[in-house]
Nucleic acid binder design. Structure first.
Lengths: 150, 150
DNA sequence: TTGCAAGTTGGAATCATTCCAACTCATTTC
DNA sequence: GAAATGAGTTGGAATGATTCCAACTTGCAA
């Protein structure tokens, strides 16, 4: 069962939504809370399952809607890997993703500003990039120290 | 209409396939030739249309099969952008992709080895990555010098 | 000449996602 | 305070890329 949002997170939600002329709804609160509760890059289906524990009537379409809304107002990021289901991530700091082939798990990798800078610098003149997506693909020794939730 | 493969390319095809115990077939030759003819990161559907001009009986399933085979034996790379159709790219040199939001076109961006090196270095211990995918997302002034084919 | 294995084919099936029309509910308008 | 408005939600249908599958082809081997 998902805990309700902290004062601070509720405010963040409220602000971001208001900023693009949208409202806080019970569904959006729960979907957002689900994302914050376990930062394991859940799929829509994952979010749906988890959110339903708190709100059994919630529909899948609404989860899609909420997540799209959040992406639109900059509250969360989408993470795509090959053709797999889209995953969602409330970590807004610049970071790359590491996809563990063995487990399918996705880890955030902190991205130092100078790396971003040097990447931007390899673009030929005339190319202006707003976003850069970096994903590593390999294996990690997960078994040891694990900290998917926070 | 697609030209048949050069001696050199046919050999590359033959070698790569043989290496994983597979054969050259007329369908595979044509699909490979289509990829080499216009390096604009075609979708499966694009490849299908172009290849059909030379081989009207070719089926979509076969194009999927051929491309999967090529990826498997390292002849081509897959390029994914968000949830759009998978695109294919016969450029095997390490490179990133730039996706022009306005036109949807994908450009190869050369990737200097030191960038790859520095990216690898940001992985925490215990993470071993085989491949790194980098994609830029933005706008370019394409209208000017254009050179999608080669 | 028969059999086998790899490859191809078309159509059906799958699966994530999007679309849509009906419904809910809070707020505004008269 | 009833009616209208509009954003948001809902379930089911539709879409579209991809995969699956069973039948067919082909070249080669026994």
């Amino acid at each position: 069962m998902i805990q309700s949002l902290s004062e601070h997170d509720r405010e963040k939600l409220q602000d971001s939504l208001a900023h693009s002329g949208q409202k806080v709804t019970p569904q959006r609160e729960i979907v957002f809370a689900v994302l914050l509760a376990k930062r394991d890059h859940p799929t829509v289906e994952d979010v749906f399952q988890r959110a339903r524990e708190s709100m059994p009537g919630l529909s899948l379409a609404t989860v899609y809607n909420c997540l799209e809304t959040f992406v639109g107002c900059g509250l969360v990021r989408q993470v795509n890997h090959e053709r797999e289901s889209t995953r969602y991530c409330p970590n807004l700091a610049p970071h790359a993703h590491f996809r563990d082939e063995a487990t399918g798990h996705v880890h955030d990798i902190e991205l130092p500003p100078e790396i971003i800078q040097s990447l931007r610098s390899i673009l030929p003149p005339g190319f202006n990039s707003e976003t850069i997506e970096i994903s590593f693909h390999g294996r990690s020794q997960e078994s040891a120290q694990r900290s998917t939730s926070n």
